[in-house]
Design a protein around this nucleic acid. Structure first.
Lengths: 344, 344
DNA sequence: TATGAGGATGGGAGCGCTCCCAATTTAAGT
DNA sequence: ACTTAAATTGGGAGCGCTCCCATCCTCATA
């Protein structure tokens, strides 16, 4: 029913081969032929069948975006959304399509292998997964290239796009130190995720470099959820910190909520720095100073690296670590240092 | 390189045809053969090539999820995420994969037609789009089935999954009326979207049924963004409303922010009802009474209807309108009526 | 023992493309 | 005009499946 190459060939009076060359922009076709065929293609509204093309060429021009369910549950910030947007954008520019795979614990094992091996997808982007995720094993045995978004210790040689969480946490903590805060606490991210661990590390390093010792009473464990920020803040209050580096903006929301309940003012009584720069960070009261993570850009880069690897399989694996950027707003006081940057 | 049907045939000692029957669970195969073939499939870790299968069978078992960019920009709530989750879940259960297409204004026209016609996708789900979106035209001429999430006046005969925005707004407004509020204002959703219009309609209807006249000074135009909630609230303040129905929780965040700035208390001075029940609604101070929109379920249903239509093309188009559910929290006072429902 | 009905199996054709090589045309050179 | 190279074009094979029909068994029955 749909228009095929052969149809174009017949109508235009050229052969299947010549039509194929024109469709794919290959050289070695006379101007006349190219013109004629282009016209017919236009006129019959022909679109190549990707399945046939993929089957014949051995490449589908599809990339798979894998998002473990845990991740999509933990983050109710727009992480998912911006990442997809970035991946999708770059893919489309390069004539690749995106297949989405959101893991579901029930189907997980069977389903991931099917997704990896069904021949529809030439390579994968895996959004930050938990350590020990069963997907890791599946990934180890796939012959297809993949790129991780967020490092994964179990896959040390894989291509990765990440943001430098150590340095981000370091910068955030240092910002607090520079504004004169002394008792700097932290609410950590999930210990099951590499980013969580790295952000603790950066926090500790900053304190040490400033000549302070790390006080474990000032470290509250969180898991990136709003609720854990709320409880984490309550846990810290008896220690009377004068500043808190919170490992995600989402948790910062929870911390704000806790502080409001007990009447502690930000930034007067306590300074807060978050991480991520989610859209609502700018609208919190007071607006939240935070480390901006360029998620969309990470999506762009992941797709770019992957597509490059698909097209040139001999490429070495790449690791791109982006620097998060300090966005100074009101939650640390010191308007002297302020100067928010616009638009994400 | 990958294992093919033919490989299984050779190793198992049966023919391609018999292997195919086993793979597809067809009858007419001896127990012995089925057993043997199943073993070999397992042993060689065979997965059918979907491209070849699709090409031969004329159906790819893929559904396309189309999300216009405007939508993904406007909503920084997890709409996108929950919808994808719902679609993906149901699809996977039925052995369909999901291809994601996020529109990009630059590529839009060319790209959407390619996506619709490349033969990879058997049908589409289109997330709520603006009226007048160019995608509508493309959709009109596709021979493939599709399901809209959110009604679209320009496509009156299409299958639709939607939530009853009129009745939701009605219920929200009525809830305010029942708690004794008299001057009930509203901040509207985007006029470019059907849901925005319907929510105004429900609001007005509720007032009228209660014997009140609609006062246009009490209607502030919003566009679903946090900022428009903030400014909308300021616009309403001189009119001294004692309650506001806000057409999205996202805008309710903005309204809260405005109210905090001027020191007006919720719910004492003013009652608020939102719409959507985004995860953070429960954590606002005071927690937000809102109409819960079952987005994930809408995703499930959309996928179900679509897959059914793909498998049985003669099915009539379906319209499923779900009722949003009132979730009573603290923002309207009247704890007498309260009784929050848990878990979305 | 012959016969036929079913169940079980095998193999050809073809889905719409790409890839490769052969055939044909055209241009260039002597 | 005659050869040779280059530019164009055409068509076969095959990608890994499904679908359909032909073949081959195996029994029960006459």
């Amino acid at each position: 029913m749909p228009v095929t190459l052969e149809d174009i060939a017949e109508v235009s009076g050229y052969s299947r081969s010549t039509v194929s060359r024109v469709i794919n922009g290959e050289p070695g076709v006379s101007h006349r032929a190219r013109q004629k065929i282009t016209d017919v293609v236009e006129q019959l509204n022909y679109h190549p069948n990707q399945a046939a093309r993929g089957l014949a060429a051995g490449q589908m021009n599809n990339i798979g975006l894998i998002i473990p369910e845990t991740v999509s549950f933990i983050f109710n910030d727009p992480y998912f959304q911006f990442l997809s947007l970035g991946v999708s954008q770059t893919s489309n520019e390069q004539d690749f399509s995106v297949m989405l795979w959101l893991s579901d614990p029930d189907l997980e094992r069977k389903s991931i292998n099917k997704f990896l091996n069904n021949g529809l997808v030439d390579g994968f982007i895996i959004a930050s997964m938990l350590m020990g995720d069963p997907i890791i094993e599946a990934l180890k045995s796939t012959p297809r290239p993949f790129v991780l978004v967020g490092r994964q210790p179990a896959l040390p040689d894989a291509s990765v796009v990440d943001c430098d969480n150590v340095q981000g946490a370091y910068a955030a903590t240092q910002h607090l130190l520079k504004t004169g805060r002394k008792r700097i606490a932290t609410i950590t991210g999930s210990e099951g995720m590499q980013s969580g661990i790295n952000r603790i590390e950066g926090y500790q390093k900053a304190l040490q470099d400033w000549g302070l010792t790390v006080n474990h009473a000032l470290i509250a464990k969180g898991d990136y959820t709003e609720g854990s920020g709320y409880f984490g803040m309550f846990q810290l209050l008896p220690e009377k910190p004068d500043a808190v580096f919170i490992a995600s903006d989402n948790m910062a929301h929870g911390a704000y909520r806790a502080l409001k309940e007990v009447g502690i003012r930000v930034p007067d009584d306590i300074a807060i720095v978050g991480f991520d720069d989610i859209p609502s960070a700018d609208q919190m009261t007071p607006s939240l100073t935070t480390m901006r993570q360029p998620i969309r850009k990470m999506g762009n880069l992941a797709a770019e690296i992957l597509i490059n690897k698909i097209n040139y399989p001999d490429t070495d694996s790449q690791r791109i670590i982006l620097n998060p950027e300090l966005v100074v707003r009101q939650s640390c006081g010191s308007s002297a240092l302020a100067g928010s940057i616009t638009l994400r």
